[in-house]
Amino acid sequence: MNARLEGMRNTAPPSARRRVAWPASLGGATGPLIGLVLLGVGFSLASPYFLSLRNALNVLDQVTVLGIVSIGMTAVIVVGGIDLSVGSVLAFSMMVMGWLNQDYDVPLVLCIVAAIVVGGVCGAVSGLLVTRARLPAFIATLAVMSVARGMANILTDGQQIVGYPDWFTRLSTVRHFGFLSLTVALVVVLVIIAGAYMTFRAGGRNLYAIGGSSEVARLAGIPVRTVTLLVYTGCGVLCGVAAVALASRLDSSQPSAGLGYELDAIAAVVIGGASLNGGVGGIAGTVVGVLIIGTLHNGLNLVGVSPFVQQIIIGVVVAGAVTFDTLGRRNR
């Protein structure tokens, strides 16, 4: 491989060398974007209900929670980590919010803050386990996943909490200006902030250095452990935010919520062009990945495909999307 690259260096035509360096967070997303468009075209032909503004807004509604969680997951994967605890942390944050509100009559606004703080604390615990106790991220977050799920159940002995005020459920149901619910607007804002941060800020660019090689990053003077800790904490905070959005959407808090979300989030990030080895990926790609997953579920439901066949199709699409991207990358 090395020889091949070295050999090409001397003789490659100048045009091939002049590829402009554009931040990885945008450049990597073209392949998945084509996939998303193809998916849209396919479903438009297969179902008369698919191609409408209302359905597009439905898809946005449906991916809010996954979208928020995936933003955090992108940062974690870019620094070369993984966070399996996102679904459980989401459930725990959600239960803390409901429990404080229902059992202790804490004003809902404070409960929302508490949910976000709890998410951040869980993320920080993962981060400390990774950076200080030096556990592999997989194991550290697996442990946090189990603990958080347990805590979510303990708060109410496994009962769900129902009955939030109307204004709270309206956050996710009322579409302002005819199209934008507040939760969807929140996702859009978070995506823009995270995307800009990871592309245009030194702190964000440092994540790519750490994921590319933590030793190189450390020798370049980047505080690797601190940044890694902050990334996991940030991911936890976003889980807390996602918990609030989900509670609003479900009008309840459930200790079993978020089961398996970590896998959807990882899939979205990887479909969006990130590498589980770290150092590659970006928010734009992740957004496309999230939309591919959302569109897939939505479209298959609209076409009326049997649930068992749906599972097969989703698996094939995920494998196909990532294979396509990897092959494309190799040929580049």
């Binding site: 939505n298 439901n301 649930p307």
Partner: peptide, 26 residues
């Protein structure tokens, strides 16, 4: 009669999404 089936796999949030899709499907 046509019956369109969706499976929430035990997750309430998934089920809300699926029912939204069913409603879209008239």
């Amino acid at each position: 009669i046509e019956v369109v089936t969706v499976d929430a796999k035990g997750d309430a949030a998934t089920q809300v999404n699926q029912i939204q899709d069913l409603i879209t499907r008239n």
